[in-house]
């Protein structure tokens, strides 16, 4: 049973490990690195939205906090990567905790606006604190990630780092979902009152998930900052929060693989459409529209439905 449950991840891991061996082009590796980074960010958001049923339009803020924390510490203050990473996680978690306690009392669209406001305030502060963050001109010269003397200084090495982090987090997330707190989360999603009635500490659980998802976003931000070696507030504006949310909905909410698919689609699509120049925007929007209209459960939901259909057909034929 355990093997069967982990089979997709194992297959995925093998594919991810082999892929760059035949694909040495830094451009394709670069795309895959970004897909990995966005997948990590969407995984946290998916846990929050798809499992706990709480919306956030401010996750770009945590992504930015992660990126700026390690970026500033390593580039400006010459701190080693690992202590900087720990600092980034602690800072993001602490801020997310405070925001979570305050905002998660709100529901639905009110929560959406509150998180949106938090995200925008962080964005404005990053822009305004020119002396500290570099403001809109950004922060340049972020060094490569170095762990124990090993430097992830090429696209090839970075690719493995990003996807290794992804797989580790995936296992962690899958375990959470299948644990007691995971079941509590899903209960929370269907009905908060019922969850509370069954003795689940709703507020505590919501805040915990919120903090965890913020840390995922921060990790993605850290990886982004060190892979591009430059960050500016612009890469984590409101539209980035909306993009993460779109990735989840398009890929399949409440399905961990959905976030990956969504991240892959929304990263690849503009690259493939760039040949259309000025028509890109309208084509991109139309494709998005069609996918969401016809696959309301996202790509993953669509695949599952297709798979079930095939299985049913095969079975029917087997019987007939």
């Amino acid at each position: 049973m355990a093997i069967k449950r982990h089979l997709p991840l194992m297959l995925f891991g093998c594919a991810a490990a082999v892929l760059p061996l035949g694909l040495k082009d830094p451009y394709y590796l670069g795309i895959l690195v970004f897909i990995g980074i966005f997948s990590i960010a969407t995984m946290g958001l998916n846990l929050l939205m798809g499992y706990a049923g709480q919306i956030s339009l401010g996750h770009a803020a945590f992504y930015a906090l992660g990126a700026y924390a390690t970026g500033l510490l390593t580039a400006k203050y010459n701190v080693h990567f690992l202590p900087a990473l720990i600092a980034a996680i602690i800072v993001t978690a602490a801020i997310a905790y405070v925001i979570g306690i305050a905002c998660l009392r709100l529901k639905g669209h009110y929560l959406a606006v509150a998180t949106l406001a938090v995200g925008e305030i962080v964005f404005i502060c990053l822009n305004a604190a020119v002396g500290f963050t570099g403001g809109p001109s950004g922060l340049a010269g972020i060094p490569s990630i170095e762990i124990g003397g090993f430097s992830f200084d090429s696209d090839f090495k970075f690719y493995y780092l990003v996807w290794a982090v992804f797989i580790l987090l995936f296992i962690l997330t899958a375990n959470i979902i299948n644990s007691r707190s995971g079941r509590a989360l899903r209960c929370l999603h269907s009905s908060e009152i019922a969850a509370a009635a069954m003795g689940i500490n709703v507020t505590k659980l919501k805040v915990q998930v919120f903090v965890l998802s913020a840390v995922y976003a921060a990790l993605a931000g850290v990886l982004y900052g060190h892979s591009v070696t430059f960050i500016s507030p612009q890469s984590s504006d409101l539209m980035f929060s909306v993009k993460l949310l779109t990735m989840i909905v398009v890929g399949g909410m409440g399905n961990l693989w959905g976030g990956v698919l969504g991240a892959a689609l929304l990263t690849l699509l503009p690259e493939m459409l760039s040949a259309f120049h000025d028509y890109e925007l309208i084509i991109y929007g139309s494709i998005l529209l069609v996918i969401v209209m016809f696959l309301p459960d996202g790509l993953m939901g669509g695949f599952e439905a297709l798979g079930n259909k095939i299985i049913r057909k095969v079975r029917a034929r087997g019987r007939g």
């Binding site: 909306v242 949310l245 909905v249 909410m253 925007l281 991109y284 929007g285 209209m293």
Partner: peptide, 18 residues
Amino acid sequence: KVLILIIITLAGSIVFKG
């Protein structure tokens, strides 16, 4: 679902802009 509809309007906004 409400969220699907919201993303539809988002996609719509991209189409209008384009």
